[in-house]
Nucleic acid binder design. Structure first.
Lengths: 248, 248
DNA sequence: CGTTGGGTTGATCGACCTCAATAAAAGTGG
DNA sequence: CCACTTTTATTGAGGTCGATCAACCCAACG
């Protein structure tokens, strides 16, 4: 059974290393220019960094829970986070995957719209929501950036609706792998290697499938030499064939 | 065969009645306070109305096409619009339904992310994108309202992902009917009558089903006295049973 | 070592799709 | 207003993709 801890704010659990910090870290931040922070001038960054705290999460740890009051918002500094919703009968749908540079709490709603779960070691840069909201009111450029991110997220959501509603299992898996690869290249360099920190079940819940179907689809891709299995992910052998399978 | 006209901007076709107009209409606009215009003071409304034009569309008419440059944004004044994406093999996924008060072009992207199609007589209030963008830059309150709408749209998109990925056919249809009813009550008064201007195929493409499955599901709901068939829509006989079927 | 979480694979089942025929509406033009 | 076409809806028969149920493997770990 998973740990399944409840928390009314972004998790400040003993096992989640946290360090309030003042100032200097933003200048060395690895997502400084890929996150919404990029919209801010140096003096504004200072204001932001002064209200921030950092926290780490272990894999499988729940960060925020659906329906709970949202007291904080955060930037993902490293690691991968699943955004999911629960349904009657234990059914789960993963509605998004957050990666380094992504912002958690785009909508600035006062209730969490989804559960956030770490699927690898995760580092967050966390801001109190009221103070972040105040900063937004002051800084239209930050709001513009926030809106840009939200609009981008909406486009991704629409892509995913198409995937969930109208694609076959193998199209889903192939498409997932390609989009994961693209998102990795935005963080690291491009590579035929795709790291997959998600379990088969996580992927199934993202793709609207069962874990068995995901497993079978991977097996078939291995058998057909489209991919090879490597620890912690896959390596793409036949990128052309993979994108044909994804049918974009 | 449908008319299938191509258009690089919001349709100014001869059959789409259009009238540029100055000023006075906003004060009598039926969606004045349910649209993003609500964020604006009277003098700003004046500025907005001076850049606007109105246009009407007949049912089945394509308003904008996916991938085309987006030169205009618009408010829905009346009628219903489907936002859809096309996929290889003629597959279509409806990613959203716009109703009176909704804004088309939330993301302010320069390419249309989807095709917009009228499914009833539609009236739009249209603004040139560059001038609307300039107004946003001037007016943080408008940007805030735009962001709010986009965030709201994102939440709806996440709901829909759950529906597409994890609900059964009858849950999908029941859920669709309830959400349609809820959205109608935001425009009109609450009623057991639900107007459905969409065809079975439109609904199928929205719900990730085939039109036959949608038809069969309706037939079953009629047979089980959950709904009765009325011209142009349905009447809910057993609201309790309907929401059970939707399994919130 | 046993235990536990994750993965694979097989056998079977069923929800939904596909194909097809028919009916009912809704336009369209004489 | 009535034939005629076109669009939309219904219903059936049969097929299939992915789900379900279940057994087993493997690696990590206390």
């Amino acid at each position: 059974m998973p740990e399944n801890r409840s928390s009314e704010e972004i998790d400040a659990a003993p096992e989640a290393c946290q360090r309030p910090h003042a100032g200097a870290t933003c200048s060395t931040c690895t997502v400084r220019h890929t996150s919404i922070c990029d919209a801010l001038a140096d003096d504004e960054i200072l204001a932001l960094s002064q209200m921030s705290r950092h926290a780490s999460y272990r894999s499988k740890q729940i960060i925020q829970e659906e329906g709970q009051p949202a007291t904080e918002v955060a930037n993902v500094v490293s690691g991968i986070i699943l955004l999911s919703r629960l349904l009657a009968g234990g059914r789960r749908q993963v509605v998004g995957i957050a990666m380094p540079g992504d912002f958690i709490g785009l909508s600035m709603a006062d209730q969490n719209a989804f559960t956030t779960t770490a699927v690898s070691e995760v580092h967050l840069c966390i801001y109190p929501r009221p103070r972040f909201a105040a900063l937004i009111d002051d800084r239209p450029s930050l709001l513009a950036r926030l809106h840009e991110s939200t609009a981008n997220e909406l486009t991704l959501a629409q892509d995913h609706m198409v995937l969930l509603g109208r694609r076959t299992a193998s199209e889903k898996v192939a498409h997932f792998l390609i989009s994961l690869q693209e998102r990795w290249t935005r963080v690291r360099s491009n590579s035929p290697r795709i790291d997959i920190p998600l379990t088969r079940e996580d992927m199934a819940d993202y793709l609207g499938l069962t874990l068995e179907t995901v497993s079978r689809t991977f097996s078939r891709f291995f058998r057909e030499k489209v991919l090879i299995d490597i620890p912690g992910g896959v390596r793409v052998l036949d990128p052309k064939r993979l994108s044909e399978l994804a049918r974009h």
